[in-house]
Design a protein around this nucleic acid. Sequence first.
DNA 1: ATCCTCGGATCGTAAAAGAT
DNA 2: TCTTTTACGATCCGAGGATT
Length: 613
Amino acid sequence: MCMATTAENDSAESASGNTQKSLKRACDCCRKRKVRCDGESPCGPCRKATIRCAYLQAPKKKGPKGLRSERVLHALRKIDQSATLTPDSPLSPGLLQDGLSQWYGSSSSSPIPLPNHTAIDGAMPTSTPAEPLTTGYGYYGPPEPQSYAMPPHMGSQALSVDQSMSQLWPTQPPQPQSYYAPPLRQQPAIPRIPNQRILPYVQLFFEHLYFIMPVVDEQIYLDPYMYSSTNYMPPETYAFLCALCAATIVQLDAAIAVPEMEPLPGRPSSAAEMFIEECLKVRQEVDYIGNPSTVTVMTSFFIFAYYGNKESSDKAWHYLQESISFVETLEMDDENSMLKLDALEAQWRRRLYWLLFITERAYSIQRRKNCRLHPTIELPLAFESEDPRLLNGFVNLAHLFSAIDDKFVSIWKGSARRKALCSEPWLAETQRSLDTVALSLAEITETTRIDISVSREWLHILAWQMGVSNGLVCDKGQTSTGRLDYPIEVARRTVDIAERANPLALDSHGIGMEQKLSDIAGCLADVLHVSSGDTSDTFLHGRQYLHLMLNKLSMMRGKESRYLRPLVAKAAGILDSQVPRGMLALPAPAGFDGKVEEKEWNGRVDRQLKWAA
DNA sequence: ATCCTCGGATCGTAAAAGAT
DNA sequence: TCTTTTACGATCCGAGGATT
């Protein structure tokens, strides 16, 4: 019979036996601090400590997992193995107890499985010895190695922790063996890339790319257990990590010293190729189309990132579209479906949705395609434990691309009746919207700030080009929309951003950053061509900016950008004859390796100019 | 004196195992 | 199918260290 309770406070005698009630649910901070929570919002302890009170963390599923008999059986096997090593030792009850204690712990009163990571007969360890993870893991599954018994359904109901676990291992049949290696049939014919070889690239991702793609849960994917030699990852997780590694390698390219991997027999010598090949192969082993999860979305996204950086645009577009299709299947574009989810799970999904939104907008414009995703759901919030600057930047970027509406994409693509739609007031409004977002850039990490700033200038240039190509140009207009010298202003700001930037932060944006810089430089070159006779300061400076941008592109990601040569060809007639030598002899940008002579730095572009001539 | 951290006692709950 | 056993996550007491 139930005692009278409130929704928040259920009765339970406290540990010390007094009459104080324990809460059903403590807030995230009290849980972490292990202090009594009053369940208010904000709660007393949080108010007192002046910290933000939230109840985002999803409760984990209680109760035993897997079959006890399996564990007993395993303990017996282990004893049997020891007995084989010492043949004359009998299988005494004491030995049996010892064996069981290996699994259940030595204290009968607290039967905690020992953190035994040693593989025995390929068995999976029971638990991770690391500090238990204390934030929610619904999105990408749990950090523990157990494969829980999953209900086969994955409806649109609120996502319980277990349901999200089934996202991590969606292809695991609902077999209740939590603690043991999967059956042999699951082992691939060709051995996998060892887990330890994957980890360095995942670390690189979190070091350099997480700021611009904050959709991967560090707590799960940097958990050392994940990469221990005994952990057999579910195929979907393994394929995802392979895609992430491949994308990380090509995105950073030569910008940093990516760890060399000695080739594995029968595989491509390039680490990125090896990872992408492995990813695509392993993906075939599972029914990821019939049973997609957020991991499936991310896998497609990172395959897209790989091919995007490789400039295989058709394949890149295919995988971007694939990830968007999974987003639609999972109804991640529907705010109502988000409301049904656990709060934390919803936050991760929002991030993923908006990352795809930003990516699709940018890529659609570059490739002149239509957009499928729209700003239909709320933006994500920062998690309790993380640096709020991270999400500020991400959200600002989302705002920036929201300023580019479907009409813009459609006109840019050339499918809309241009003149009828492309009006000066509308373009001016678009330009203005681009400037109204991202006002608090100081509150943002540098990597994201660069992305926002350059993307904004890039979009400004595109909007300007759109106006010009639709007859909205005027010589010295009041608005930016049609001014002929507007690209010079944009270039000035872009150069300013690029010169101040930490080169690594600039490089971490991969080929996308090179494309944007090259688009801006290309437009600038066009304008300078048109106004070749103009010797006013504005146009003289324009040439200076062009020179600086070419210099920047000559050493993107540790080498010459593939966009440099076409640009140099375009700029040849502008720069070599008309720019005063004093202007060409510019100092190396901040952060450039001081060991390289300034002369050489300037010389790179000059050599390119000669080549183009 | 006060605040904070965290080991661990104790509880509720869910799943497995056993009884009928 | 019902009951019991077991495992495990959650709460939060309180010892002890850190800070004011």
